[in-house]
């Protein structure tokens, strides 16, 4: 089972993602970080295979955390989950910083799992 860390300041989005991941059969959710700084700490303690991370969060945002994570940990695969997926510049920036994919909100479970399985 691949370990997934969810990073989102929204409790409801974290709940949705944890449910999708928990019911998938091939992924397990190892935690929920509420901002980029927490994500960096939890990446160290939980050692996830995949991080599903929001872009727009209070404190350290997703793109700043992504920048740090891509330098600190070459193994972890980061997927951005964001309502800003349709903003071309943000999408491109995320991919250039090392994100493996960008999932736009609102999302469907099938789409999330398809993207995670393709990693």
């Amino acid at each position: 089972m691949k370990k997934v860390l969810v990073v989102d300041d929204s409790l409801s989005v974290a709940r949705q993602l944890e449910k999708i991941i928990g019911e998938s059969g091939d992924f397990v959710c190892v935690g929920h970080a509420k901002n980029g700084a927490e994500a960096i700490k939890m990446n160290h303690t939980e050692n996830p295979d995949i991080i599903c991370m929001d872009m727009n969060m209070p404190g350290m945002d997703g793109l700043t955390a992504l920048r740090t994570l891509s330098v600190m940990d070459k193994e972890v695969k980061v997927v951005m989950v964001t309502s800003l997926g349709g903003v071309g510049d943000k999408f491109t920036e995320a991919l250039k910083l090392g994100a493996k994919n960008v999932i736009s909100k609102p999302f469907e479970a099938d789409n999330v799992l398809r993207i995670l399985r393709e990693l």
Partner: peptide, 24 residues
């Protein structure tokens, strides 16, 4: 109450993110 309020914030987040995309 925290989760219930968060869902309204998330709806706003989804709409505004898509507004930003359309504006771009």
């Amino acid at each position: 109450a925290e989760v219930l309020e968060d869902t309204v914030m998330e709806f706003v987040n989804v709409v505004c993110g898509n507004v930003a995309a359309k504006a771009s």
